[in-house]
Protein backbone atom coordinates (compact mmCIF):
# COMPACT_ATOMS: atom_id res chain seq x y z
CA UNK A 1 0.00 0.00 0.00
CA UNK A 2 1.45 3.40 -0.82
CA UNK A 3 1.83 6.08 1.79
CA UNK A 4 -0.85 8.33 0.33
CA UNK A 5 -3.43 5.63 0.71
CA UNK A 6 -2.28 4.88 4.25
CA UNK A 7 -2.59 8.53 5.07
CA UNK A 8 -6.13 8.67 3.73
CA UNK A 9 -7.18 5.62 5.70
CA UNK A 10 -5.63 6.95 8.90
CA UNK A 11 -7.31 10.34 8.55
CA UNK A 12 -10.60 8.71 7.66
CA UNK A 13 -10.45 6.49 10.73
CA UNK A 14 -9.64 9.42 13.02
CA UNK A 15 -12.51 11.44 11.55
CA UNK A 16 -14.76 8.47 12.10
CA UNK A 17 -13.77 8.12 15.77
CA UNK A 18 -14.14 11.84 16.44
CA UNK A 19 -17.49 11.85 14.67
CA UNK A 20 -18.68 8.88 16.72
CA UNK A 21 -17.80 10.66 19.99
CA UNK A 22 -19.67 13.78 18.92
CA UNK A 23 -22.60 11.68 17.74
CA UNK A 24 -22.89 9.87 21.07
CA UNK A 25 -22.78 13.19 22.93
CA UNK A 26 -25.38 14.77 20.69
CA UNK A 27 -27.64 11.73 20.96
CA UNK A 28 -27.46 11.79 24.76
CA UNK A 29 -28.01 15.52 24.97
CA UNK A 30 -30.80 15.35 22.43
CA UNK A 31 -32.59 12.53 24.22
CA UNK A 32 -32.32 14.18 27.64
CA UNK A 33 -33.42 17.57 26.40
CA UNK A 34 -36.19 16.22 24.17
CA UNK A 35 -37.73 14.20 26.97
CA UNK A 36 -36.99 16.76 29.69
CA UNK A 37 -37.69 20.17 28.22
CA UNK A 38 -41.48 19.66 27.90
CA UNK A 39 -41.65 19.04 31.68
CA UNK A 40 -40.02 22.35 32.54
CA UNK A 41 -42.14 25.17 33.87
CA UNK A 42 -41.79 27.84 36.50
CA UNK A 43 -43.86 25.64 38.80
CA UNK A 44 -41.53 22.67 38.24
CA UNK A 45 -38.43 24.75 38.99
CA UNK A 46 -39.78 26.30 42.18
CA UNK A 47 -42.30 23.93 43.80
CA UNK A 48 -41.21 21.41 46.45
CA UNK A 49 -41.22 17.73 45.57
CA UNK A 50 -44.18 15.51 46.37
CA UNK A 51 -43.61 11.97 47.60
CA UNK A 52 -46.86 10.26 46.53
CA UNK A 53 -48.79 12.71 44.39
CA UNK A 54 -48.49 14.12 40.93
CA UNK A 55 -47.24 17.63 40.19
CA UNK A 56 -44.22 17.96 42.47
CA UNK A 57 -41.32 20.19 41.50
CA UNK A 58 -37.59 20.35 42.19
CA UNK A 59 -37.34 23.83 43.71
CA UNK A 60 -35.81 22.68 46.99
CA UNK A 61 -33.40 20.29 45.28
CA UNK A 62 -32.28 22.97 42.87
CA UNK A 63 -31.63 25.39 45.71
CA UNK A 64 -29.83 22.67 47.68
CA UNK A 65 -27.57 21.90 44.73
CA UNK A 66 -26.46 25.50 44.43
CA UNK A 67 -26.09 26.04 48.15
CA UNK A 68 -24.04 22.88 48.53
CA UNK A 69 -21.92 23.85 45.55
CA UNK A 70 -21.16 27.28 47.00
CA UNK A 71 -20.31 25.86 50.41
CA UNK A 72 -18.12 23.13 48.94
CA UNK A 73 -16.31 25.68 46.78
CA UNK A 74 -15.89 28.08 49.69
CA UNK A 75 -14.16 25.31 51.63
CA UNK A 76 -12.14 23.70 48.86
CA UNK A 77 -11.01 26.72 46.81
CA UNK A 78 -8.81 28.41 49.43
CA UNK A 79 -7.21 25.08 50.36
CA UNK A 80 -6.65 24.12 46.73
CA UNK A 81 -5.22 27.56 45.92
CA UNK A 82 -2.82 27.40 48.86
CA UNK A 83 -1.77 23.86 48.04
CA UNK A 84 -1.23 24.68 44.37
CA UNK A 85 0.83 27.80 45.15
CA UNK A 86 2.93 25.85 47.59
CA UNK A 87 3.48 22.92 45.25
CA UNK A 88 4.27 24.94 42.17
CA UNK A 89 5.88 28.12 43.43
CA UNK A 90 7.69 27.16 46.61
CA UNK A 91 8.20 23.45 46.97
CA UNK A 92 11.34 21.91 45.60
CA UNK A 93 11.25 18.37 44.31
CA UNK A 94 11.90 16.09 47.24
CA UNK A 95 10.21 13.15 48.90
CA UNK A 96 7.67 15.34 50.71
CA UNK A 97 6.31 16.94 47.55
CA UNK A 98 6.44 13.62 45.74
CA UNK A 99 4.32 12.13 48.53
CA UNK A 100 1.86 15.03 48.35
CA UNK A 101 1.57 14.73 44.59
CA UNK A 102 1.03 10.99 44.77
CA UNK A 103 -1.61 11.50 47.46
CA UNK A 104 -3.38 14.00 45.23
CA UNK A 105 -3.26 11.61 42.28
CA UNK A 106 -4.74 8.79 44.33
CA UNK A 107 -7.36 11.01 45.91
CA UNK A 108 -8.46 12.23 42.51
CA UNK A 109 -8.97 8.71 41.22
CA UNK A 110 -10.96 7.59 44.26
CA UNK A 111 -14.46 6.47 43.21
CA UNK A 112 -16.91 9.06 44.47
CA UNK A 113 -19.03 6.44 46.20
CA UNK A 114 -16.00 5.61 48.35
CA UNK A 115 -15.63 9.29 49.19
CA UNK A 116 -19.33 9.28 50.09
CA UNK A 117 -19.03 6.27 52.39
CA UNK A 118 -15.96 7.75 54.05
CA UNK A 119 -17.90 10.99 54.53
CA UNK A 120 -20.76 9.03 56.04
CA UNK A 121 -18.54 7.26 58.56
CA UNK A 122 -16.41 10.24 59.41
CA UNK A 123 -18.53 13.39 59.16
CA UNK A 124 -22.04 12.00 59.60
CA UNK A 125 -21.35 9.41 62.27
CA UNK A 126 -18.03 10.16 63.95
CA UNK A 127 -18.25 13.94 64.01
CA UNK A 128 -22.03 13.74 64.51
CA UNK A 129 -22.81 16.24 61.81
CA UNK A 130 -25.71 14.02 60.70
CA UNK A 131 -27.08 13.97 57.19
CA UNK A 132 -26.49 17.62 56.52
CA UNK A 133 -25.37 20.16 53.98
CA UNK A 134 -22.16 20.53 55.96
CA UNK A 135 -21.36 16.80 55.78
CA UNK A 136 -22.11 16.93 52.08
CA UNK A 137 -19.91 19.98 51.58
CA UNK A 138 -16.99 18.27 53.35
CA UNK A 139 -17.43 15.13 51.26
CA UNK A 140 -17.53 17.23 48.10
CA UNK A 141 -14.38 19.01 49.28
CA UNK A 142 -12.61 15.65 49.42
CA UNK A 143 -13.91 14.88 45.96
CA UNK A 144 -13.06 18.28 44.55
CA UNK A 145 -9.80 19.21 46.26
CA UNK A 146 -7.42 17.06 44.19
CA UNK A 147 -9.00 18.06 40.88
CA UNK A 148 -9.02 21.73 41.77
CA UNK A 149 -5.46 21.69 43.11
CA UNK A 150 -4.24 20.10 39.92
CA UNK A 151 -6.13 22.53 37.72
CA UNK A 152 -4.82 25.56 39.62
CA UNK A 153 -1.30 24.17 39.49
CA UNK A 154 -1.68 23.80 35.73
CA UNK A 155 -2.88 27.40 35.52
CA UNK A 156 0.23 28.59 37.36
CA UNK A 157 2.37 26.50 35.04
CA UNK A 158 1.07 28.40 32.01
CA UNK A 159 2.67 31.63 33.30
CA UNK A 160 6.21 31.97 31.97
CA UNK A 161 9.21 31.76 34.23
CA UNK A 162 10.23 35.12 32.72
CA UNK A 163 7.26 36.74 34.46
CA UNK A 164 8.51 35.55 37.82
CA UNK A 165 12.04 36.73 37.06
CA UNK A 166 10.66 40.06 35.89
CA UNK A 167 8.83 40.53 39.18
CA UNK A 168 11.81 39.53 41.30
CA UNK A 169 14.18 41.69 39.27
CA UNK A 170 12.03 44.70 40.16
CA UNK A 171 12.64 44.11 43.83
CA UNK A 172 9.35 42.39 44.55
CA UNK A 173 9.47 39.63 47.12
CA UNK A 174 8.57 36.12 46.11
CA UNK A 175 5.14 36.48 47.72
CA UNK A 176 4.50 39.84 46.03
CA UNK A 177 5.53 38.38 42.71
CA UNK A 178 3.07 35.52 43.16
CA UNK A 179 0.14 37.56 44.43
CA UNK A 180 0.59 40.66 42.30
CA UNK A 181 1.98 39.33 39.04
CA UNK A 182 1.42 35.60 38.69
CA UNK A 183 -2.04 35.21 40.17
CA UNK A 184 -3.63 38.12 38.26
CA UNK A 185 -2.17 36.72 35.08
CA UNK A 186 -3.46 33.26 35.94
CA UNK A 187 -6.92 34.32 37.17
CA UNK A 188 -8.80 33.63 33.93
CA UNK A 189 -7.43 30.14 33.64
CA UNK A 190 -7.92 29.48 37.37
CA UNK A 191 -11.50 30.67 37.07
CA UNK A 192 -12.12 28.40 34.12
CA UNK A 193 -10.87 25.48 36.19
CA UNK A 194 -13.07 26.47 39.12
CA UNK A 195 -16.19 26.71 36.99
CA UNK A 196 -15.52 23.42 35.23
CA UNK A 197 -14.99 21.67 38.55
CA UNK A 198 -18.19 23.34 39.75
CA UNK A 199 -19.94 21.50 36.94
CA UNK A 200 -18.58 18.18 38.16
CA UNK A 201 -19.52 18.93 41.76
CA UNK A 202 -22.99 20.05 40.68
CA UNK A 203 -23.67 16.75 38.97
CA UNK A 204 -22.18 14.58 41.74
CA UNK A 205 -24.60 12.14 43.37
CA UNK A 206 -22.75 9.17 44.85
CA UNK A 207 -20.67 11.22 47.29
CA UNK A 208 -23.80 12.94 48.58
CA UNK A 209 -26.28 10.09 49.02
CA UNK A 210 -24.71 9.10 52.34
CA UNK A 211 -23.67 12.56 53.50
CA UNK A 212 -26.15 15.25 52.54
CA UNK A 213 -28.94 12.69 52.62
CA UNK A 214 -31.87 11.88 50.42
CA UNK A 215 -34.58 13.94 52.00
CA UNK A 216 -35.51 17.48 51.17
CA UNK A 217 -37.65 18.92 53.95
CA UNK A 218 -39.76 21.86 52.81
CA UNK A 219 -37.99 25.16 53.21
CA UNK A 220 -39.37 28.46 54.31
CA UNK A 221 -37.89 30.89 51.81
CA UNK A 222 -38.93 33.82 53.98
CA UNK A 223 -36.66 32.75 56.80
CA UNK A 224 -32.98 33.48 56.18
CA UNK A 225 -31.72 32.93 59.69
CA UNK A 226 -29.23 30.06 59.27
CA UNK A 227 -30.00 28.76 62.77
CA UNK A 228 -33.66 27.96 62.08
CA UNK A 229 -34.28 24.43 60.94
CA UNK A 230 -36.54 25.39 58.05
CA UNK A 231 -34.27 28.16 56.83
CA UNK A 232 -32.72 27.50 53.41
CA UNK A 233 -29.38 28.65 54.79
CA UNK A 234 -29.25 26.22 57.69
CA UNK A 235 -26.14 24.10 56.99
CA UNK A 236 -27.19 21.38 59.44
CA UNK A 237 -30.34 20.32 57.61
CA UNK A 238 -30.46 17.28 55.35
CA UNK A 239 -30.46 18.32 51.75
CA UNK A 240 -31.18 16.21 48.74
CA UNK A 241 -29.64 17.69 45.62
CA UNK A 242 -30.90 17.51 42.07
CA UNK A 243 -28.50 14.73 41.08
CA UNK A 244 -29.40 12.66 44.14
CA UNK A 245 -33.08 13.33 43.42
CA UNK A 246 -32.75 11.87 39.96
CA UNK A 247 -31.09 8.78 41.34
CA UNK A 248 -33.74 8.41 44.04
CA UNK A 249 -36.76 8.83 41.78
CA UNK A 250 -35.41 6.27 39.40
CA UNK A 251 -34.63 3.71 42.08
CA UNK A 252 -37.53 4.14 44.46
CA UNK A 253 -39.81 6.94 43.27
CA UNK A 254 -43.46 6.13 43.89
CA UNK A 255 -45.08 9.33 42.64
CA UNK A 256 -47.21 8.68 39.53
CA UNK A 257 -45.25 11.14 37.40
CA UNK A 258 -41.81 9.85 38.44
CA UNK A 259 -40.66 9.40 34.85
CA UNK A 260 -41.57 12.94 33.89
CA UNK A 261 -39.93 14.45 36.97
CA UNK A 262 -36.79 12.44 36.39
CA UNK A 263 -36.61 13.62 32.78
CA UNK A 264 -37.25 17.21 33.76
CA UNK A 265 -34.61 17.11 36.52
CA UNK A 266 -32.07 15.61 34.17
CA UNK A 267 -32.72 18.37 31.67
CA UNK A 268 -32.28 21.01 34.40
CA UNK A 269 -29.03 19.40 35.51
CA UNK A 270 -27.65 19.21 31.99
CA UNK A 271 -28.63 22.78 31.21
CA UNK A 272 -27.02 24.04 34.42
CA UNK A 273 -23.77 22.23 33.60
CA UNK A 274 -23.81 23.50 30.02
CA UNK A 275 -24.29 27.00 31.36
CA UNK A 276 -21.31 26.50 33.69
CA UNK A 277 -19.17 25.51 30.74
CA UNK A 278 -20.19 28.44 28.57
CA UNK A 279 -19.86 30.80 31.52
CA UNK A 280 -16.36 29.50 32.13
CA UNK A 281 -15.25 30.46 28.64
CA UNK A 282 -17.01 33.79 28.57
CA UNK A 283 -16.03 34.99 32.04
CA UNK A 284 -12.46 33.76 31.56
CA UNK A 285 -12.06 35.75 28.36
CA UNK A 286 -13.68 38.88 29.74
CA UNK A 287 -11.66 38.76 32.92
CA UNK A 288 -8.42 38.29 31.06
CA UNK A 289 -9.14 41.34 28.95
CA UNK A 290 -10.02 43.42 31.98
CA UNK A 291 -7.08 42.34 34.09
CA UNK A 292 -4.54 42.72 31.38
CA UNK A 293 -5.39 46.11 29.97
CA UNK A 294 -7.54 47.94 32.49
Amino acid sequence: MDSKKQNKIAIGTLYGIAGLVVLILLALLGYILASGLPQLSWHFLTAPAKAFLKGGGVGVQLFNSFYLLILAMAISFPIALGAAIYLYEYARDNWITTTIRTAIEILSSLPSVVVGLFGFLFFVVKLRLGFSILSGAFALTFFNLPLLTRSIEDSLRTIDLEQREGGLALGLSRWETITRVILPAAVPSILTGVILSAGRVFGEAAALIYTAGQSAPALNFADWNPFNISSPLNPMRPAETLAVHIWKINSEGIMPDAKAISSGSSAVLIIAILLFNFAARYVGKRLYKRLTSA
Partner: peptide, 21 residues
Amino acid sequence: TVEIRKEIGMVFQQPNPFPFS
Protein backbone atom coordinates in the same frame (compact mmCIF):
# COMPACT_ATOMS: atom_id res chain seq x y z
CA THR B 1 17.59 40.00 48.11
CA VAL B 2 14.52 42.22 47.72
CA GLU B 3 16.53 45.35 48.59
CA ILE B 4 19.43 44.20 46.43
CA ARG B 5 17.20 43.82 43.41
CA LYS B 6 15.71 47.25 43.94
CA GLU B 7 19.23 48.67 43.61
CA ILE B 8 20.34 46.27 40.89
CA GLY B 9 17.60 45.86 38.29
CA MET B 10 17.58 43.44 35.41
CA VAL B 11 16.31 43.30 31.83
CA PHE B 12 16.02 39.90 30.18
CA GLN B 13 16.64 38.41 26.78
CA GLN B 14 12.98 37.82 26.06
CA PRO B 15 10.88 40.96 26.61
CA ASN B 16 8.72 40.04 29.61
CA PRO B 17 6.15 42.76 30.21
CA PHE B 18 3.47 41.76 32.69
CA PRO B 19 0.09 41.15 31.06
CA PHE B 20 -1.16 44.53 32.25
CA SER B 21 -1.38 47.99 30.75
